[in-house]
Amino acid sequence: MVVSATSRPGGGRGSGDPGGPPPPSGAGRGRATARLSVRLRRLGLPYLLILPALLLELLVHLIPMVIGIGMSFIKLTQFFIRNWSAAPFAGWSNYHLAVDFNGPVGRALLHSFFVTVTFTVITVALSWFLGMAGAVLMQGEFRGRGFLRALFLVPYALPVYAGVITWSFLLQRESGLINHVLVDQLHLFSDKPFWLIGQNSFFSIVVVSLWRWWPFAFLVLMAGLQNIPQDLYEASSIDGAGWMRQLRSVTLPMLRPVNQVLVLVLFLWTFNDFNTPYVLFGKTAPQEADLISIHIYQSSFVTWNFGTGSAMSVLLLLFLLLVTAVYLLITSRRRSDA
């Protein structure tokens, strides 16, 4: 994201000259002052334009983040929540608690972390694969193409709570469609399994997230495919390249910049996703599907321990920063090598 948004050469080139045409010589003092104020206005204009965005980001993201980091160093339990400035300084003890993997809090956090990593890797890989398959198969003209494209985008357009709550109905043990198909119709199990608690809840959250996220990959990849010049296909066709060869040697390399951004965005959104598990499982997720954002939410709001919750959030942010930096470093280098 960062790379493609800021380092594109030539974007907006040449228009940023704040000075305008060189002033005619011999201008009077009044005109000089007027010109100076025009110059100043021009110089200030970009800052004026970004000011609203900057203020809003400061208020909602940056200042709360700094406060959140501060909160991770105080003992903010239910006794101090009404008067949080009186909470005693805790030093690193919240962090010690969070990363003490022999203690119950640290062990639970580590477990939740591994569940989330597994969940994210599977969901992102499958979302990308389905999105890619959908986008590639949709190329070319055939009947019903427009309808299918619209249909595939519906899960992405549906509000999370409406889509996910429907899934939780499908996954009900007694009255859900999934058990009806698997047990009543296909006779795969002798007893109806639970899907929203226990071991199976991990599969449920993966399937539901996949259902929600693959249309986004599909949308972005479809837009990316439209940007590949058609003559590349024609040229490779003349060279005797078949369909598979074109996919490997034209489509995938041309999509690399799109994929770089898409995979990163999918990773961050999936890793931080709170909405899907919250609507599917409620405030307390089953152990097997205890995703990190729900875990921290629960540690903060259900047990009223905001200091430790903040420390966990800070650790999570550091992890995401590290992964993003390494990812951008690796993928950007590979891009410039290619």
């Binding site: 959140g68 961050l268 709170f274 942010l317």
Partner: peptide, 9 residues
């Protein structure tokens, strides 16, 4: 990139 949970409270 920020986890929403970090700046919620």
């Amino acid at each position: 990139m920020f986890p929403g949970i970090l700046f919620l409270l």
